[in-house]
């Protein structure tokens, strides 16, 4: 039995919602939440792809990135801009007391208009379409990724998700 290639198990790029990087969190939420009743078109993996003005793929925006963008800020530190920072509440549960409900909700309209580029995950690691499934899986484990972009030549053509990788690896052992 031969192992699958990354290109065989990837989800093609056009299945994901796309937005330009200057679009707002509100617009990203509309894309992610599959607005309206048309749930069949809901995006896979809860990811929105973020593009440059030259239509180049810049990064990915996950649900938790959006949540990170909406969280009320206690400081104005530039460090806050990266959502992969430890969530303040996790560091010090007492901080949550400062998050008065009204104050947090009151800040939402302002927060929600911030551009996605400030909260997305930049693309760092990629695999090639011909890369072996196991090789791809190891890379994802190593980098702690739920998804990895797949390159064909110089172009990104799709994303492999951890869940799909697991599904195919499971077939190898059963």
């Amino acid at each position: 039995m031969t192992s699958k290639r990354a290109g065989e198990i990837m989800i093609p790029l056009d299945r994901f919602p796309h937005i330009p990087y200057w679009f707002t969190l509100r617009q990203a939420m509309a894309e992610l939440s599959g607005v309206g009743p048309d749930q069949t078109l809901r995006c896979p993996c809860g990811i929105v792809l973020v593009f440059s003005a030259q239509n180049q793929l810049l990064g990915m925006l996950r649900a938790q990135d959006i949540l990170g963008g909406l969280r009320p800020r206690l400081t104005s530190s530039a460090a806050e801009n990266r959502a992969d920072r430890a969530f303040d509440v996790a560091v010090d549960p007492n901080l949550f007391r400062f998050y008065e409900y009204e104050r947090a909700v009151g800040k939402l309209p302002e927060q929600i208009e911030r551009p996605v580029v400030d909260f997305m995950q930049p693309l760092a690691t990629t695999v090639n379409v011909d890369d072996d499934l196991l090789q791809t899986a190891y890379l994802m484990i190593h980098e702690g990724l739920d998804q990895v972009p797949v390159l064909e030549g110089e172009r990104i053509v799709g994303l492999v998700s951890a869940l799909d990788a697991l599904r195919h690896i499971a077939r190898l052992v059963v």
Partner: peptide
């Protein structure tokens, strides 16, 4: 709409429209 992209961001060509 678009302020300049942060310099450290790397863009990848992607399968998009015909252009």
């Amino acid at each position: 709409p678009s302020r300049p992209v942060p310099a450290d961001l790397k863009g990848f060509l992607a399968v998009m429209g015909t252009n």
